[in-house]
Amino acid sequence: MPSSGMDLKRQAEELLGNKLDRVRLVHDTTQFMELERGDVLGLDGRRYLITGVAYEGRFGLDEEPKHWVKRALDFSDGSQKLIKLVFFEEFDLPIGLLKVRCYRSPAKESRILELVRGRPQFMQGITHLDPSGNQVRVLDRVPGQSLDKRLDALRLDHRAWFDGLLRPMLERFLGSLEAIAFLHGQGERHGDIRRDHIFVHNEDQRWVWIDFDYNFDFKQSPFGLDLFGLGNVLCYVVGRGIPTLRQIKQERPQTLDLLDTGDLSPVIPNRVFNLKKLYPYLPEELNRVLMHFAASAPIYYERVEEMIEDLRPAIAKLPQPVREEAP
């Protein structure tokens, strides 16, 4: 039985628990800029109430609205969704001194969502085709915060981090690595591996990958960009922040003399990867994994499995935390 306009408005307000000025039922998402709070998306017989737009979570760009990503509520159960609408863009992504041609691909994200269904290390979602054939991705919102927000909020010095938390953190990271290895095994790539694309789930603290829509023209090394991202996340976790030369100059100038260019990332040459020079208590095995991402590395990892193989025994060398629960 088709509900009248008034019915829809009442249902939407009930779902939201708040009044709405205006409620519209929309099927076509091509003009995604025009969709706003109060619009109800009707797709494949399901309905989603748009409650707002998502904002750029990236460091320093907090205020930018992303008009192609809407926040929404599912009419069927009131659950929170993020709805990604089709927005093609193509641009040169600066990575250190290099630029990489980058394409946003809804098709890639939809395919990966199918592939990772039921895998707790990945965000979950489904794809609806709207009447214009747009691939609308409806994502379950992972309840939690991004890894960087989570870790940056901790007030701990590095030694306390190392003694109390690093081991369980890296055990979780190992799960994230295995998840990416699975993706690569299926011939797919994440495409945008960064510490803010891992969400820490509120319920069981597991790490969940989000955001699969970046694609690149790949060259000889099909997984090079993903591995680069994984190296950065590892360094971030082990160092509780990736130390830059500038920070070291300010905070511990005496260690600056110990460093040379071989200790830095070849791609972003102000990031220090030889963390043992800063934190001498790090096990050699762990530092060796990090050094695969440093400029002095004779060879780089080409596959995630190689990284996992080295990281697993390195984690075993870390102190067991006294307290069980970790953030």
Binding site: V100, K219, S221, G224, P266, A295, Y300
Partner: peptide, 15 residues
């Protein structure tokens, strides 16, 4: 290739 390029994109000759 620079080290950075080889790291990110790989190199045909080294493969």
């Amino acid at each position: 290739l620079s080290k950075a390029e080889e790291f990110l994109f790989g190199s045909v000759s080294s493969t």
